[in-house]
Simulated assay, not measured.
Amino acid sequence: MCMDILDPAADAIMPGFRRLDLDTTGARIRVAVSTANRGDGPPVLLLHGHPQTHLTWYRVAPRLVEAGCTVVAADLRGYGDSSKPPGGEGHATYAKRAMALDQVEVMRALGHERFAVIGHDRGGRVAHRMALDHPTAVERLALLDIAPTATMYARTNREFATRYFWWFFLIQPFDLPERMIGADPEHFLRKHIAGQTKNPGTENEALFREYLRCYRDPATIHAICEDYRAAASIDLEHDAADADVRVSAPLLALWGAKGTVGALYDVLETWREKATDVRGRALDCGHTLQEEAPEETSAELLRFLKG
């Protein structure tokens, strides 16, 4: 099923996109598809992280469209206005394998068998799994402010656990984190975003209110916890099974010089352990590159997409 969606709030933040709900094997996915070039340019899939939605790309997506790309920005399952299926046995419903399949099916439904994918945070982890499971679909892979999940868990120390406490809080058994976040979702969300943003003056209150609208839904909070529970369990099993497999697509890694990932890891080296063709660098911002440094982020992405 494919349904056109009227969303005035989203249109006000990120105009020039047609919003659709598309059914996949396991979920219903909200997507925003650029209308400027009517699908003639090279397709690019944008995947957001936690606690954002597809609107996090509001400052980058128009620049990609202006450069000729056909842009598809999607809400991951469990996030934004995509559906929130039950977690399932072993959190399998929120395995990155399942979340990646959603997005491959979305792109196929839109007529794109092969495409570039750009993922920030959780979206980057979905994109990494997509490149492993669907190598013929992923032409190029750009990952924003992450090191590989298995690497980060294997090299955990006190500083990482302090800075990224939610990696360990959200994986606690149902329903402890759900109840604690649900008691005051706005406070948790503001503190979470403020702790990641390092460039003052980049906050957008209208955007935050959209994030909060979604975050106030108990089903969203539960889905986010399931996403992180999957990352600490079934995703690690999948990663271990593919330990000797390398991403074959060209990979661009960008990260915030003021953030945690670059401070604790040699980001390029971690990805060279997982892929055959890696390049990238730090940008002068915090965790959310696409919101804090959109011009520089867009320039790096376009240079990479053009080969």
Rank of each mutant, 00 (worst) to 15 (best):
G68N: 08
C69A: 14
C69T: 11
V71P: 01
A74D: 05
R77A: 01
G78I: 07
G78T: 05
Y79C: 10
Y79M: 12
Y79K: 00
G80F: 00
D81Q: 15
S82E: 05
S83H: 05
S83F: 01
S83E: 03
S83A: 10
K84D: 08
P85W: 00
P86D: 06
G88P: 01
E89W: 11
G90V: 01
G90Y: 03
H91D: 15
A92K: 13
A92D: 15
A92Y: 11
Y94E: 03
A95S: 15
K96T: 14
K96G: 09
R97A: 14
R97K: 13
A98P: 04
M99E: 03
M99N: 08
M99P: 03
A100H: 11
L101I: 06
L101G: 10
D102L: 00
Q103R: 01
Q103V: 01
V104A: 14
V104M: 11
V104P: 06
E105Q: 14
E105V: 03
E105H: 04
V106Q: 01
V106C: 05
R108T: 06
A109Y: 12
L110K: 01
L110A: 01
L110S: 02
L110T: 04
L110V: 00
H112T: 09
H112S: 13
E113K: 14
E113A: 15
E113V: 09
R114F: 02
F115H: 09
A116L: 12
A116R: 11
V117L: 10
V117Q: 10
V117R: 12
V117F: 08
I118N: 12
G119D: 09
H120M: 09
H120S: 13
R122S: 10
R122C: 08
R122L: 13
G123H: 10
G123W: 10
G124R: 05
G124T: 05
R125P: 09
A127M: 03
R129T: 11
A131N: 05
L132T: 03
D133P: 03
D133W: 06
H134Y: 15
H134T: 07
H134R: 13
H134M: 08
P135C: 04
P135V: 09
